[in-house]
Design a protein around this nucleic acid. Structure first.
Length: 907
RNA sequence: GCGAGAGUGGCGGAAUUGGUAGACGCGCUGGCCUUAGGAGCCAGUGGGGAAACCCGUGAGGGUUCGAGUCCCUCCUUUCGCACCA
């Protein structure tokens, strides 16, 4: 063993040892309990970033920990290799996306290997390989057969200058990122997957996922958004019938059927057929519809934009009163959601209220919220008295009382939060005086009788549009034939191979300009036909890769029986940003495969850990004229001013030393130039330091703030451990530990070591709090450092304590552990070692410190024997001199004893 | 706008089930060692106070013998919002 810790040499030796023995390649073995440790696969962007390092270190710690627990551990890795960045890179440097992507994969694979992750590389996959994506195509065809995949129109962002569809990310403030042109919405035919068919199961099965964070399950539940409500038809008025040249009704969905008597307008989307029809004869309205078509399709934009509307002049009839209600076009109603139309109830919906105020529409209160002042409740009591025997005069009195309630309880100029609450209906004809649920039931029943509505369950979740008008993705296996229509590519012609030599130029999908790709013959009739040039959403690729790892070499089927051994994954680790879409799509895809008989599981991930982002300081300089510049924190020097405030400076080649502004902490990103390159970190400190710091700096689910000093602290700790082991073994290996003959000091160290072991085991195995496990070992090393007993038994106890430190750190800093384990005299490799169990006998203590409070404030400490009864503890507490000072001669009202912890004396 | 989190010393964080707030690390201060220090070792370090003590977990209220932890209102901030991955 070397006296000086040399990370590069230590890491080379350990990695060679694992590679030569293929330590992390695993086989299915029914005799052993498996552990499938899955991390979200990376997009091959070019270089690893700190988020990757954190993600895969968390996974690696768990994988290695479980291996030491004796489990058959699978930890695979692959590449989410299709997607937009490859096309952008191609546009800026002319290299085809395939070449760029494969180069990136090769580079990043080496970076991952340098970090020493316990990955089974024999199962590596890349989604851009035909051997992978052919099964996307194959399953898509199965979904078509089952009616799960279908074609309908969808709305996309259209850049009128580049004549291309843009991703939401490529739309900045309503304009195209490259052209700056105002974006339009455009409807095009697309393929959809019927995820809403699974909405109920996706929602209900969340209860079967105890290993998922509550917040993720809540977000998914809200995203699916099950609501019980009512479909209501508003029959066309004579003017609308004439305009549409047909009878008909405007259909809406509402969860508040109890407010149907408060409807004072209808709002439809700009793309709604009634709006389009009305626009034909009304140039002003037509302009407004055009205006609505501009702007992005993003929900956040739609929700925050100014609410605008315009009347169509057309009417529908109220389903109960028959009164005409005017139809408006509103920019906050979207064609893609529900029916593309809503009923406007300004008195009980905030958005409708705002709309009504702006356009001077009537506001008619028809619900009295339950939480209402007594005087108004009294008025309601009088209504109930009148209602018992109705005649014309009484009906008028009721109506007048209801108007009085409405006048007193509603200010129609200002929205109050409780206007939207449910309560008792009023001014609602025969449905007045009913509680929310009763009112909804009665109104739904009456509507159903008239054929104008019914109760229905609706989901917020929409079907998944998977068509992308882009090149670098999995081709959709469809042929469009003039005679036969849309014809699925026969299975034996799969995969439909994506040509890899195209270079996009930003003006639409290059596949659509490549006859060699799209010219084909119809599989049905043999006549010339056109191949579909849309590719699949990359979320398709990532919806089942975790199944394919189980059988990555299977060329004849999508999956095989090995999936039954490995799946579901015991642990899935990835960013919280995937809490909804990726995780929901993967759950859906798994259920579809189950229903096709391909897998036996219903849920793919048993436990989920959502890791926080990696942050770093952001430093910027805003020149008086010109663009703001960002400086990497490594280039910034910080000193203190005379008054103690910090000054941050950067020396630039062009402007010399300039003072920069510290903007605080932000996610590591290119745009803010605050990234830390893992490669440089490994070169300077070694992989173990990088791993140790990322695990120590914060618990996995929280954000991690980067700190160069913190990294040095991690490096310092590893060196201290190295020196401690070196000093110990340089005096020779100690004799055998005899636990029966230890001195009190030796027993203390031994207790500290086993306490640290017990804590770390719980922290890693149950709580997934690696930072506190590391802290426990740091504390142990401090304790070992203070222990100066060099007797044979003293050295034996120290030896055991050092072994515990090395074993607990093995999953976190495996390379240095490998070296230290050998130094401690072992022939076996640490990676094959079993985790230790804390020795209960070593943990035993004879006395325990009890805290004494007086009126909840800490006033003293007493030491009592372990297991002392309550009366003894109480007596010792009351008798404590310091405590007596605070109790004085005041009478003791109550004494609370928390065994083993604390006594609170209330005076 | 809607949905979900987070907020504790100078900094990252600890406090696991409502029971000692600040473990561990960084930084800082002082000392030792060294030709030297961006190395190492030792000591100190929430604020106020001479001390006794008092104050302190984003703000304000509440429940409790006891609240960082539970409840209500508010502020700040992060993530997601369906074509970034």
């Amino acid at each position: 063993m070397e006296e000086i810790y040399d990370p590069a040499a230590v890491e080379r030796t350990a990695q060679e040892y694992w590679n030569q023995r293929r330590t992390f390649e695993v086989r299915e073995d029914n005799a052993r309990e498996k552990y499938y440790c899955l991390s979200m696969f990376p997009y091959p962007s070019g270089r690893l970033h700190m988020g990757h390092v954190r993600n895969y270190t968390i996974g690696d710690v768990l994988a290695r920990f479980m291996r030491m627990q004796g489990r058959n551990v699978l930890q695979p890795m692959g590449w989410d290799a299709f997607g937009l960045p490859a096309e952008n890179a191609a546009m800026s440097n002319g290299v085809p996306p395939a070449k760029w992507t494969r180069q990136n994969i090769a580079y990043m694979r080496n970076q991952l290997k340098s970090l020493g992750f316990a990955i089974d590389w024999s199962r590596e996959l890349a989604t851009c390989d035909p051997s992978y994506y052919r099964w996307n195509q194959w399953l898509f065809l199965r979904m078509l057969e089952k009616g799960i995949a279908y074609r309908k129109t969808g709305v996309v962002n259209w850049d009128p200058v580049d004549q291309t569809v843009l991703a939401n990310e490529q739309v900045i403030d309503g304009r195209g990122w490259r052209t700056g042109a105002l974006i339009e919405k455009r409807e095009i035919p697309m393929y959809y997957l019927n995820i809403t068919r699974y909405a109920d199961e996706l929602l209900g099965a969340l209860d079967d996922l105890p290993g998922w964070p509550e917040r993720v399950k809540l977000m998914q539940a809200n995203w699916i958004g099950r609501s019980e409500g009512c479909e209501i038809m508003f029959p066309y008025g004579p003017d609308t019938r004439a305009a549409m040249s047909a009878d008909g009704a405007l259909k809406v969905f509402t969860t508040r059927a109890d407010t149907v008597f408060g409807v004072t307008f209808m709002a439809v989307a700009a793309e709604h057929p009634i709006a389009l029809e009305a626009g034909k004869s009304n140039p002003e309205l037509n302009d407004f519809i055009e205006e609505c078509r501009r702007g992005s399709v993003m929900e956040a934009d739609v929700a925050t934009q100014e609410k605008k509307g315009m009347p169509t002049g057309l009417h529908v009839l109220h389903p109960f009163t028959g009164e005409p209600i005017e139809i408006w076009v509103a920019n906050y109603v979207l064609m893609g959601y529900g029916e593309g139309a809503v009923m406007g109830v300004p008195a009980h919906d905030e958005r409708d209220f705002e709309f009504a105020l702006k356009h001077a529409l009537p506001i008619v209160p028809v619900v009295l919220p339950e939480s209402f002042p007594a005087e108004i409740a009294a008025l309601r009591g009088r209504i109930e008295a009148e209602r018992s025997a109705i005649d014309a005069a009484k009906a008028e009195r009721i109506a007048s009382l209801e108007r009085e309630i409405a006048a007193r309880s509603f200010d129609t100029h200002e929205w109050r939060s409780w206007y939207g609450d449910s309560g008792i209906t009023l001014s609602s004809s025969e449905f007045s005086g009913l509680e929310f649920k009763v009112a909804v039931d009665a109104i739904a029943a009456a509507l159903e009788k008239k054929g104008l509505g019914r109760k229905r369950i609706q989901y917020r979740l929409r079907d998944w549009g998977v068509s992308r008008q882009r090149y670098w993705g999995c081709p959709i296996p469809i042929v469009h034939c003039g005679e036969c229509g849309d014809v699925p590519t026969p299975d034996e012609q799969l995969p439909v191979v994506l040509p890899e030599d195209l270079v996009p130029d930003g003006s639409g999908n290059p596949l659509a300009k490549t006859p060699a790709f799209y010219e084909c013959t119809c599989p049905k009739c043999g006549k010339p036909a056109r191949r579909e040039t849309d590719t699949m959403d990359t979320f398709v690729d990532s919806s089942w890769y975790f199944l394919r790892y189980a059988c990555a070499d299977q060329s004849r089927a999508m999956v095989d029986e090995r999936v039954d051994y490995w799946l579901p994954a015991d642990q899935y680790i990835g960013g919280i940003e995937h809490a909804i879409l990726h995780l929901l799509y993967s759950r859906f895809w798994t259920k579809v495969m189950r229903d096709l008989g391909l897998v036996k599981i219903s849920e793919p991930f048993n436990n989920l850990l959502t890791q926080g982002m990696v942050l770093n300081d952001i430093y910027s300089y805003q020149p008086p004229d010109g663009r703001k510049r960002y400086f990497n924190p490594t280039d910034v020097t910080t000193r203190r001013d005379a008054d103690g405030s910090e000054i941050h400076e950067v020396t630039t080649s062009d402007a010399g030393a300039i003072r920069v502004v510290h903007e605080g902490l932000g996610k590591m990103s290119k745009s803010e130039n605050n990234g830390v390159d893992p490669e440089g970190l490994v070169a300077r400190f070694g992989a173990d330091t990088a791993r140790l710091f990322t695990m120590f700096a914060s618990p996995p689910e929280q954000t991690l703030a980067w700190s160069d000093e913190g990294v040095q602290g991690a490096s310092r700790f590893i060196r201290r451990l190295w020196v401690a082991v070196y000093d110990h073994v340089s005096k020779g290996l100690p004799s055998k530990l005899d636990t029966g003959t230890l001195t009190p000091g030796q027993r203390d160290l031994r207790r500290s070591a086993h306490q640290a072991l017990a804590k770390a085991t719980d922290d890693i195995g149950r709580r997934r709090n690696f930072n506190t496990a590391i802290a426990a070992i740091m504390e142990l090393l401090n304790t070992i450092g203070r222990f100066d007993d060099v007797s044979p038994q003293g050295r034996a106890v120290r030896h055991e304590a050092l072994e515990i430190a090395v074993i607990v750190l093995a999953p976190i800093t495996p390379h240095v552990g490998h070296a230290l384990w050998q130094a401690l005299g072992h022939e076996t490799a640490l990676v094959d070692e079993r985790w230790r169990e804390a020795d209960k006998a070593a943990l035993v203590q004879d006395a325990v410190e009890i805290v004494v409070q007086v009126n909840g404030k800490l006033r003293g400490r007493i030491s009592v024997a372990v297991g002392a009864d309550e009366a003894t503890v109480r007596e010792a507490a009351v008798g404590d001199e310091h405590v007596r000072k605070f109790v004085g001669d005041k009478p003791i009202r109550k004494v609370i004893v928390v065994p083993g912890k604390l006594v609170n004396i209330v005076v």
